[in-house]
Amino acid sequence: MDAWIALARGPLFRISLAVFVLGLGYQVAETVLSAFLAWRRAGDRSLPVGAIARATARWVLPVRLMRAHPLASVASVVFHAAILLVPLFSLGHVALWRTGTSIPWPVLPAGVADALSVAALVALAGLAVGRLSSRVGRGLSRAQDLLVLVLLGGVVAAGLLAAHPAWAPVDARAMLLAHLLLADATLALVPLTKMAHCVLFPFLQLVFEVGWHFPAETGRHVAIALAKENEPV
């Protein structure tokens, strides 16, 4: 068991982290580059940078979220806060981050980390129920949407049980291994699934704004490409 844990914590984690960093880096670079190239072709290159920043900030500080679907919105905010804070600042993870580095790293009190984990699980369950209980939610959901919830729920639940052996239904080492393997899989899947929005979302605001800034010759070039220059309306 220890050898498997070492594998999951060592080489597998490093591979997953590399996929995560390189994958997201590629996605960000591709998104920014394509937006830049589109902007360079635009007939009007003025961009409402302030509006883009405000639109991004509105979702970083999600006061607005609460106004529509308040329950789902609260669940979403709690869930996002927990899955950002716990992996970065819970004691067990900080020990991992500190390995081989001298970076001082703040630590969440164990009680707070546990509370956040439980809140994340409740929120995840709420989001899943919300998706599955309404006709609209079911209609919108793809397999990916549910698998991501299951995967993240598995990571958090296994982590919580691994940290509290007394609560675990099976050997705590097995829970730790499950937590590590699921976390590795999650990290590697972030760039390949909708979870990529964790870093992409400010750039998406930019892309959609640039999208309205058409090249000056777009119509003429499309007409030429389709041999419609002289075609009547």
Binding site: T31, S34, R41, H197, L200, V210, G211, F214, T218, A225
Partner: peptide, 15 residues
């Protein structure tokens, strides 16, 4: 090919 829609569709498809 002749507009700015490719990055838009690409971003929407991924995100």
């Amino acid at each position: 090919a002749h507009s700015s829609y490719a990055p838009v569709l690409d971003a929407a498809a991924r995100a």
